[in-house]
Nucleic acid binder design. Structure first.
Lengths: 229, 229
DNA sequence: TTTGAAATATGATGAAGGTCATTTTTTCAA
DNA sequence: TTGAAAAAATGACCTTCATCATATTTCAAA
């Protein structure tokens, strides 16, 4: 149930928390976060932060989806990651004490809480499990991005689309993939027209089914085969 | 001076240490590392670790250069990073407790020390400055890789070559860039033939000067202009 | 110094995919 | 419900770059 007002969202009942980096907090810590955080309802296409701005804390997604992207020289977006319920965004640049080099924007209406930099860093100092979880997460993402780079460099758009759809399948779980063609193209790293043509191919090959903008995967195995491994 | 035997390299006299993540160690910690680490001389093109193997510790480059790369489906390498004196490699996967998804290999003869996982993790537990340095480094690399992805997705090979040469300029400092055409192509993410043709263009445009395999940059500004920002 | 292998270089060719123009469909607010 | 704007789809065209073939140069070992 999406809370459309600015009402407070209680950490202890947050659906995403159990699988999140904050799952390790003790009751006392959680209560502290709960008392100090700010909760916000975001409409579709609202910005969390912009490239170039300075991090003031971390965003914790209660419900909804957020794209993390960079704008290239000609203004075209490259989506780096799509974050969903339970994930935290905005803490990577916070550690390096540099301006954001990526931007974040909701893909759908979302409830997102904000924990201040000080509160978060204090918790990290005092909670080794949280700390190690963060380090692990950063390391995992580094590996993911290495894969991303290699895919970009060596795979065809068709292969990358298949790979991207597998990732989106995990993000959207049972739901059909619900992204604009442009966002999907910007995730795959191609032109919108090319993406649309490839979606048509996939449709004709019986790999996917499309209802207006929503895409359902019918044949996951074929996707794996195309993506290569 | 490159130590060509397996002689011990003393941390306190290590040229790279002052700028390294281990710069924050106190004397006691440094002595402990010094007493427990293993030092090795590597020939050119020797492997530090392979994709799929399990991390047992971190490699600390005293002298030399190491390429970090992934092998794509057709066996073609994609170079993700080139590490030099003072840098540590191999700790990213160590934190995530997963097999390496990248491989590391020397680009030239090198002296590289090895610190065991336990020793390193213990230090991280007890030294907050080291810990924060690591987190900061991981975050910085995440940003760099986001740039890398966006470049791959949106820039032409010519633009990427210029960008890559700027990075290499920082790595090689005053020295001419000394990489095989194949490695350079695998860093830029293109075919070796295409890379060679572009180098010829750069040469004709007076941007670089080439002596056999060594490349000197004559006009850094032009490189920046081509790379775009 | 010679010789063979590896690295570098060049040429020819074609496919992948980007761009621009235009049409069709969907969405959303009035 | 309708009309306008945004999104999606299609077509035509052309540039970039990968691939394959082959030539030339460099390097190291005999």
């Amino acid at each position: 149930m999406l809370e459309k007002s600015h009402k407070h969202i209680t950490c202890s009942t947050c659906v995403g928390r159990k699988n999140s980096l904050l799952g390790s907090l003790c009751n006392e810590e959680m209560e502290h976060v709960n008392a100090h955080k700010a909760c916000n309802y975001y409409k579709k296409h609202q910005s969390l932060f912009l490239e170039g701005s300075f991090p003031r804390g971390v965003f914790c997604i209660n419900e909804g989806m957020v794209k993390i992207f960079q704008r290239g020289d000609e203004g075209k977006e490259q989506i780096i990651h799509i974050a969903k319920s339970g994930e935290m965004v905005g803490f990577r640049s916070m550690f390096s004490e540099t301006p954001y080099r990526v931007a974040a924007e909701t893909l759908e209406e979302s409830n997102i809480c904000f924990i201040s930099k000080d509160d978060f860093l204090n918790m990290m100092d005092s909670n080794p499990v949280l700390r190690n979880g963060i380090i692990k997460e950063l390391s995992k993402e580094l590996s993911d991005r290495a894969d991303f780079i290699t895919n970009m460099a060596q795979k065809s758009v068709r292969e990358r689309l298949a790979f991207t759809m597998i990732i989106l399948l995990e993000i959207y779980e049972k739901e059909p993939i619900n992204l604009s063609r442009e966002d999907l193209a910007n995730f795959v790293g191609t032109a919108t027209e090319t993406l649309i043509r490839l979606l048509k191919d996939f449709k004709e090959e019986g790999i996917i089914e499309v209802h207006t903008r929503k895409i359902s995967v019918l044949n996951k195995e074929k996707l794996f085969a195309i993506a290569g491994k």
